[in-house]
């Protein structure tokens, strides 16, 4: 299982040139494009799409920030500038369905783009994985076994409370036959990793603790082998937490897509 993709990732520009349309557009997001750790998750999402044979494409270098961090930070101008440019691009490609690798992109495109002229069916990659499992196209065989391992899932705010998606990521884990553990603060009561609302891009205000430490302490109480995530920002915060607690040897922080790829040996 080499990290490198043994297939080419199709771009919208290529598809258009061939006169084809994809079934689904994979919106990668900025973290998924540039952040080294998140890039690996991006490739894993492509591996899943490729494996099940869905006709998909990415925007490649044409993609741009959804405007989410600008909007949460209060810069509505910049948000709408980004949104309108993206909508023009998406509508130009006649996009109907989008899967995102990031709950923030998911929330923004799904909820905030329609009012600006961009209406698409938008799902998060954990929802796609759940659908593929339900359809029998994805299983948990042929790869690493998670059987009996202690796994806890951290709800990203913009997937969970923000949009009510609690079950899809859990369904994607249930198939592993692992020991799924819930933190005390989970689902609608889940605790933020500390990165939302543009906090990812700044130092926290003065306090007695960092939010990701508060969260990781709660997760570590369960003595998990894996902390499952569904958001590149949560991934950064949780990994930093595990590092600071010196638990890297015992606990892995993995995205649901990575777990799926490992379990299927893709």
């Amino acid at each position: 299982m080499s990290e490198k993709l043994n297939f080419e990732v199709p771009t919208m520009a290529q598809m258009m040139a061939r006169g084809e349309e994809p079934e689904i557009l994979f919106w990668v997001g900025c973290a998924g494009s540039y952040d080294e750790r998140a890039q690996k998750i991006t490739r894993d999402i492509c591996k899943i799409l490729h494996h099940v044979g869905i006709k998909y494409a990415v925007l490649g270098t044409e993609e741009s920030c959804t405007g989410d961090p600008a909007k949460r930070a209060g810069n509505e101008f910049l948000f709408q500038m980004q949104a309108m440019a993206n909508i023009e691009l998406l509508n130009g490609y006649n996009i109907k369905k989008i899967v995102t690798g990031c709950p923030h992109c998911f929330n923004t495109i799904k909820n905030e783009y329609p009012g600006l002229g961009g209406s698409y069916e938008v799902i998060h990659h954990t929802q796609l994985i759940q659908q593929l499992i339900d359809e029998g196209k994805l299983k948990a065989e042929g790869g690493e076994s998670f059987k009996g391992r202690r796994i806890t899932y951290h709800d990203p705010c913009y997937l969970g409370r923000g949009n009510g998606v609690y079950e899809a990521p859990r369904k994607a884990l249930e198939i592993l036959d692992a020991q799924l553990l819930e933190m005390k603060r989970c689902k609608s009561g889940g605790l933020c990793c500390g990165a939302g609302g543009a906090q990812m891009f700044k130092e926290p205000e003065k306090g007695h603790k960092d939010i990701n430490i508060e969260r990781i302490e709660e997760a570590l109480e369960l003595q998990p082998a894996v902390i499952a995530a569904g958001c590149p920002f949560c991934m950064t915060m949780l990994r930093d937490g595990v590092k600071l607690k010196d638990q890297e040897q015992n606990v892995q922080v993995l995205d649901i897509a990575e777990i799926t790829v490992k379990a299927n040996g893709l």
Binding site: C30, S33, R43, S64, A73, F201, K202
Partner: peptide, 25 residues
């Protein structure tokens, strides 16, 4: 961060030309 989005279309200081590098790495 806002300046980066305005200039590079991403909240970090990366070039838009490098946005698709993940696929080949």
């Amino acid at each position: 961060m806002l300046g980066n989005i305005e200039n590079n279309g991403a909240p970090w200081k990366y070039s838009p030309a490098d946005r698709f590098n993940w696929a080949g790495e």
